[in-house]
Design a protein around this nucleic acid. Structure first.
Lengths: 127, 127
DNA sequence: CTGCATCCTATAGGATACTG
DNA sequence: CAGTATCCTATAGGATGCAG
């Protein structure tokens, strides 16, 4: 069976590692949607939660801390009563925009074609 | 920090759903790397396994079936002895290339900055 | 060679309740 | 308001062995 290799596997391995690395920080159910949500501007904890619709505080809290760690998000505490906390994107976070954009584009164009292999209901319809 | 990313929350919700949908099919540790690997041309099961380096047959098998379900990959069986099976990308799979590309680009540019929050070692170094 | 069966672990993610 | 604490489930992912 003769196949033809399109390019060297060396190149591919490098690319593979890059993709894996990116995936490492950005994959998961919430990271990218979270960044997308925050692109509207600084938001408070509750507002973010509302924007994400179905995320629980525990998970949201963890995700935000992860994003903070990787400097995508900055957390600001205002000494009011009661305390006010906002989350906003860092300039650095702009670097992931192409990814979100590609995902958004793809999702909007192929939504109908998607075959659900898991039972998790993602968005549009609930049952 | 002024960004230009402000837009109405309506738009944002739509975008969010698109992103979630895309993530639904494409997220996970292997889907995208797998597609990247197969971009070299048709490969046999063992070859794919080698290309992915550290994936087990069970997982590989499942991932390939998922990709097949969503028509990113076509499985071809050749009636030889022993049987030969190849996997290759469908034309449709090209639609996800922008995503892989964005990921690859981002990964290669920000690799050094990544903070590992989990102990899973993704690629470049083992410990 | 291809890849399923079985068993197992880790972790992502969630429900619910509660606190400074 | 902004989370944390606790408990829990599902799933991703892995190890090993075997079968067509």
């Amino acid at each position: 069976m003769p196949y033809d290799r399109k390019h060297s596997s060396k190149e591919c391995t490098g690319a593979m590692n890059s993709v894996k690395d990116a995936l490492y920080v950005l994959s998961g159910k919430w990271k990218l949607p979270l960044i997308l949500a925050l692109s509207e501007g600084p938001m408070r904890f509750n507002e973010v939660q509302k924007a994400l619709a179905d995320i629980t505080p525990k998970v949201l809290s963890k995700e935000l801390r992860d994003l903070e760690l990787n400097e995508f998000v900055e957390r600001k505490v205002f000494d009011t009563v009661p305390v006010t906390v906002t989350y906003e994107l860092t300039p650095y976070s702009q670097s992931v925009w192409p990814i979100i954009d590609a995902l958004k584009e793809w999702g909007s164009q192929h939504r109908e074609r998607i075959i659900k292999t898991r039972r998790t209901v993602s968005t549009t319809e609930k049952a």
